[in-house]
Amino acid sequence: MAALTMRPTTSGSSALRARGLTLSYDGRRVVEGLDLDVPAGRVTVVVGPNGCGKSTVLRGLSRLLRPTGGTVHLAAGGDDDDVWSLRPKEFARRVALLPQSPPLPEGITVVDLVGRGRHPHHTLVRRWSAADDEAVLRAMQATGTVDLAERHVEELSGGQRQRVWIALTLAQETDIVLLDEPTTYLDVAHQIDVLDLLCELNRTRGTTVVMVLHDLNLAARYADHVVAMRDGLLVGSGAPGDLIDEDFVSRVFGLGSRVIPDPVTGSPLVVPTSTHPQTGAPS
């Protein structure tokens, strides 16, 4: 597929930078030759159709999947480190990841699970302290999970469980947070709560937030910077108002639409009109 016209980002420096990034599963290339800059101190949302490589990119940025080609550099804080040159704990003190469907330890309570977000900060010398208790409490207060503290996580609803995982991620207190579908299992009200929370984290702490979302309208409303993918390729990036129009929606999603200003935020609002027949889909 031909790439859309690239537009400059609204931020000068990058928190993460990928060059020529190629990612594969069992010898099958899923992402190929990706050049990507994640603006520092901004909210970036990755969008695209199912199976386009969005989650795979997050795995590559977060060291969960070793590239078969190219590099990922952590450029935040004035450093420029290849992420694979860092020790796992050092990387985890700088970048937090909430993947889809993370494994759940059996019989663990909410407060103990959230507390695991503090493990990267511990060493043989530095053990659990009052500062860790405070970080866990802040994360649970921010996600509305304090009342669940002594509950076993497996007893919770899907929405409650997702908020607990987000609390664990926040308790890690990193400069960069990567989230793969953080609104999964949440009803509309809680989706807005979570996205408001992440944007508040960005505004108050300057945290760089990168998340994968399926809902293009939520992406347009909450993102400073949108990254669009299709078939493992980057096909466009930029501010939502510059990038998202009817041609963009057609080329990336194969969907006819009207794009109008959101009456609340003024961001692009996509109103679907039709799907393209197979013969008219983007090539």
Rank of each mutant, 00 (worst) to 15 (best):
residue 1 M to D: 08
residue 6 M to R: 11
residue 6 M to W: 06
residue 7 R to I: 10
residue 8 P to S: 15
residue 8 P to V: 07
residue 10 T to G: 15
residue 10 T to N: 14
residue 10 T to Q: 11
residue 12 G to K: 15
residue 13 S to G: 08
residue 13 S to Y: 09
residue 18 A to T: 01
residue 25 Y to W: 11
residue 27 G to Y: 02
residue 27 G to S: 12
residue 28 R to N: 14
residue 29 R to L: 09
residue 31 V to C: 12
residue 33 G to W: 14
residue 42 R to V: 01
residue 43 V to W: 06
residue 44 T to P: 10
residue 50 N to C: 10
residue 50 N to T: 13
residue 52 C to R: 01
residue 55 S to Q: 05
residue 58 L to G: 00
residue 61 L to A: 01
residue 66 R to A: 14
residue 66 R to F: 13
residue 68 T to V: 11
residue 68 T to D: 15
residue 69 G to R: 04
residue 69 G to A: 09
residue 71 T to R: 04
residue 72 V to K: 01
residue 73 H to R: 15
residue 74 L to V: 03
residue 75 A to D: 12
residue 76 A to N: 02
residue 81 D to V: 15
residue 81 D to A: 15
residue 82 D to Y: 12
residue 84 W to V: 03
residue 84 W to T: 05
residue 87 R to A: 14
residue 87 R to K: 15
residue 87 R to W: 12
residue 89 K to Q: 05
residue 89 K to L: 03
residue 90 E to I: 15
residue 91 F to T: 00
residue 92 A to V: 02
residue 94 R to V: 01
residue 95 V to A: 02
residue 96 A to Q: 10
residue 96 A to N: 11
residue 102 P to I: 00
residue 102 P to R: 07
residue 103 P to V: 12
residue 107 G to D: 14
residue 110 V to Q: 00
residue 111 V to Q: 02
residue 114 V to Q: 07
residue 117 G to D: 04
residue 122 H to F: 07
residue 124 L to Y: 12
residue 124 L to N: 13
residue 125 V to I: 11
residue 127 R to M: 15
residue 129 S to E: 15
residue 131 A to E: 13
residue 133 D to H: 14
residue 134 E to R: 15
residue 138 R to D: 11
residue 138 R to Q: 13
residue 139 A to E: 03
residue 142 A to Q: 10
residue 150 E to D: 13
residue 150 E to R: 13
residue 151 R to F: 04
residue 154 E to K: 08
residue 154 E to P: 03
residue 154 E to F: 11
residue 156 L to W: 08
residue 156 L to K: 02
residue 159 G to R: 02
residue 166 I to H: 03
residue 168 L to Q: 11
residue 168 L to S: 04
residue 168 L to F: 06
residue 170 L to V: 03
residue 170 L to P: 00
residue 171 A to G: 06
residue 172 Q to I: 01
residue 175 D to F: 11
residue 177 V to W: 00
residue 180 D to F: 04
residue 180 D to M: 04
residue 181 E to M: 12
residue 182 P to T: 01
residue 184 T to E: 08
residue 185 Y to C: 05
residue 190 H to N: 13
residue 194 V to C: 12
residue 194 V to I: 03
residue 195 L to R: 12
residue 195 L to E: 08
residue 195 L to Q: 14
residue 197 L to D: 05
residue 197 L to G: 04
residue 201 L to R: 14
residue 203 R to D: 04
residue 203 R to Y: 09
residue 205 R to L: 11
residue 209 V to G: 03
residue 210 V to E: 09
residue 210 V to N: 07
residue 212 V to A: 09
residue 217 N to H: 05
residue 219 A to S: 09
residue 219 A to K: 04
residue 220 A to H: 05
residue 223 A to I: 00
residue 223 A to C: 14
residue 224 D to E: 08
residue 225 H to T: 01
residue 225 H to Q: 09
residue 229 M to I: 06
residue 229 M to W: 09
residue 235 V to L: 14
residue 238 G to A: 02
residue 239 A to L: 05
residue 241 G to F: 14
residue 242 D to V: 01
residue 243 L to G: 01
residue 244 I to D: 03
residue 245 D to Q: 00
residue 245 D to G: 02
residue 246 E to T: 09
residue 246 E to V: 07
residue 247 D to Y: 12
residue 248 F to K: 02
residue 248 F to M: 00
residue 250 S to K: 09
residue 251 R to F: 02
residue 252 V to R: 00
residue 253 F to K: 07
residue 257 S to V: 06
residue 262 D to M: 05
residue 265 T to N: 05
residue 269 L to W: 08
residue 271 V to Y: 07
residue 271 V to E: 11
residue 275 T to D: 09
residue 278 Q to L: 10
residue 280 G to M: 11
residue 280 G to Y: 06
residue 282 P to W: 04
